[in-house]
């Protein structure tokens, strides 16, 4: 049986204590554990020493929908809770429902999914495998095995919720040693497989806030081999606003699982905004998305195939919103 390495465990009752504990060497934040535990069992975090669990911290669970339509989801709310909450936009519920498996959605959290570690075929590997290959950059080695010519890590952003939250223009609340701050979720991510979040390791994501979004049409499409369990190997979140004359007044198209961060596709968005929303503009916007992302061969199926699917998935997502 694959087991966890020896660890210390802390379950502070306040966020401030948690922040202080996270400043220690080798401290790792645990929410639902469905990302952390397998990664630890595969010995992906050799410096891990302490798990800081948030289970005792009050007020980290729950969804509030305010009178102006603002949605506040506390970070430890499970994905299953999001799926089942009929007050939430369909896109959010569907994206949460597309994560992993029913059991994992019962334990995995919104915060955990937004901060899910980037993944790579050369990184999320078991023990003997890891020792049989030289370590990659993210595993503490000298080079990236996917793109050996480059000096960056290309591990893949594998969150289903992240592209949707970016498309919905959500903000996240963080608490850290310097207090609380709020940033647009787009700014939470960095296209770097190793330092894929802009928040510091001491900072804790406490809440995600989706502002009023009446009239916004949004959807999420996920590419994966099986209808369950699998991580996305391409995710497309699209949100558009159309006026009475079917002119697109606002568009956000976000790609997941093709880079180390969810990627906005401004080239596609620009095609749509100010123009009539029809098959022709949709096709043009979809085509424009092809050029942006350069997925690599580090998830299931080939990078060529995933690249080819980008315009298809963008077009289908946009068509659904027409």
């Amino acid at each position: 049986m694959l087991r966890l390495p020896p660890l210390r465990y802390e379950a502070p009752s306040t966020l401030e204590e948690a922040v202080a504990l996270l400043a220690e060497d080798g401290a790792l934040l645990a929410a639902g554990g469905s990302d952390l535990v397998p990664n630890l069992k595969r010995r992906q975090y050799p410096t891990a020493r302490t798990i800081v669990s948030l289970r005792r911290v009050a007020d980290l669970v729950g969804i509030r929908v305010e009178s102006d339509g603002t949605i506040r989801i506390a970070a430890l709310t499970t994905l299953a809770t999001v799926v089942e909450d009929s007050r939430l936009p369909k896109v959010l519920r569907e994206a949460a429902g597309a994560v992993a498996s029913p059991q994992i959605r019962n334990q995995g959290t919104v915060g955990g999914n937004l901060c899910v570690d980037t993944r790579c075929d050369w990184l999320n590997v078991p023990d003997t495998w890891r020792q049989a290959a030289e370590p990659c950059l993210k595993a503490g080695g000298e080079m990236c095995w996917v793109a050996p010519a480059k000096k960056d890590c290309w591990a893949v952003s594998s969150s289903d919720l992240a592209p949707v939250m970016v498309a919905l223009g959500a903000e996240v609340q963080l608490i850290g040693p310097d207090g609380r701050r709020s940033i647009p979720i787009e700014q939470l991510y960095r296209n770097d497989g190793m330092a894929y979040l802009t928040k510091t390791t001491e900072e804790i994501l406490t809440e995600v806030v989706i502002g009023p979004h009446a009239g916004l049409r949004a959807t999420y499409r996920k590419l994966r081999r099986r209808g369950s369990i699998d991580f996305p190997i391409l995710g497309v979140a699209a949100a558009v606003r159309l006026d009475d004359a079917d002119i697109c007044t606002e568009a956000r198209i976000v790609l997941g699982a093709v880079a180390s961060a969810p990627l906005r596709v401004p080239t596609s968005e620009e095609v749509l905004v100010g123009r009539t929303y029809n098959a022709e503009t949709i096709a043009e916007a979809a085509e424009a998305a092809r050029k942006l992302a350069r997925p690599l061969n580090n998830t299931d199926l080939t990078s060529r195939y995933r690249t080819r699917m980008i315009p298809v998935f963008v077009r289908r997502a946009l068509e659904e919103l027409g």
Partner: peptide
Amino acid sequence: ALHSGPSLLDYKIPTVLE
């Protein structure tokens, strides 16, 4: 000579949905 993914995540067995 490295296995492409010796795990039940990378080795795809059909689920009930398939």
